[in-house]
């Protein structure tokens, strides 16, 4: 009898960690599932906003650009256009991108340079190049707060708290060397809010494995029932350069014509 009870206790003792482990496994979602939830987050069919881009170099010299940005979904295809409003010497510069849902289809990008008054097609494989002097890459601009699921292998490392919010810590490794070269990263670690599925912080390593930059997403509030980040900052640890995007007048309800997302709209300006 004693040995039966003893065996039962032993069995229960052995089961407890298993059960705890199961619970932990359930709450610690897989990296791919977290990425899917990030991309499934509602970001509105259309959004219109002003973005102030403040760039500061190591010596503290600041450059500020005021821009107007429009984004619209055409089915699953995302189109974004950004018009530069100031300073006057780069005013009217404009950038247009078509982000396709198909993983094997290159995105399309155009840049309007007022000095030439011509729209220039940009290679979509410039994904890892920095966008017009900022610390955000063309890929960052295109994805906004979404992620490229197929570009990385995803692994959940654990949970941590960022600014008082429970976050999953996920490690992303580019699927191959070519992709790493294309994106400009060998590894990314992201802290993803477990409630609203938005990246709150991310750290990037360059292709040589050195710390490259840190992204922070702040001032996240609900606008028209959509979680909206009002400040994105990226600090490059190699150059000491920092970029802060501040979003103003975010509006998900504005009517935006389809023809705003064309090469001709780039020329006509905002």
């Amino acid at each position: 009898m004693r040995s039966h009870i003893q065996n039962l206790f032993i069995a229960l003792f052995l089961l407890i960690p298993l059960s705890v482990s199961d619970v932990a496994a359930e709450s610690l979602l897989s990296g791919e599932e977290i990425a899917r939830r990030i991309n499934a987050r509602n970001e509105g069919e259309v959004v219109s906003r002003f973005i102030t881009m403040a760039m500061t170099d190591r010596s503290g010299t600041e450059r500020v650009r005021e821009t107007k940005s429009l984004r619209k979904y055409f089915g699953k295809e995302k189109r974004t256009i950004i018009f530069y409003l100031s300073p006057s010497n780069i005013k009217d510069t404009a950038f247009l991108t078509y982000d396709y849902p198909e993983a094997d289809r290159d995105d399309d990008q155009w840049l309007y340079l007022p000095a030439a008054r011509k729209v220039r097609r940009i290679s979509a494989s410039d994904r890892g190049d920095y966008f017009l002097g900022t610390d955000f890459t063309y890929e960052d601009i295109r994805k906004e707060t979404k992620v490229g699921i197929e570009d990385y292998s995803w692994k959940t490392l654990g949970e941590e708290t960022i600014d008082g919010h429970r976050c999953f810590l996920v490690e992303e490794i580019p699927v191959n060397e070519k992709m790493a070269q294309e994106l400009g990263y060998s590894k990314v670690q992201s802290w993803i809010d477990a409630e609203i599925w938005m990246v709150r912080q991310a750290k990037y390593w360059d292709v040589a494995g050195n710390p490259l930059k840190t992204l922070q997403v702040r001032e996240i509030t609900l606008i028209q029932d959509i979680w909206t980040a009002h400040q994105l900052s990226a600090e490059n640890h190699k150059t000491g350069h920092k970029t802060v995007f501040t979003f103003k007048d975010v509006n998900y309800g504005q009517s935006v014509k389809d023809e705003m997302f064309t090469e001709d709209a780039l020329r006509r300006g905002y």
Partner: peptide, 11 residues
């Protein structure tokens, strides 16, 4: 005309 193919843009 113009189009992009990987790293190349043709116009």
């Amino acid at each position: 005309f113009s189009n992009a193919f990987g790293n190349l843009t043709m116009r």
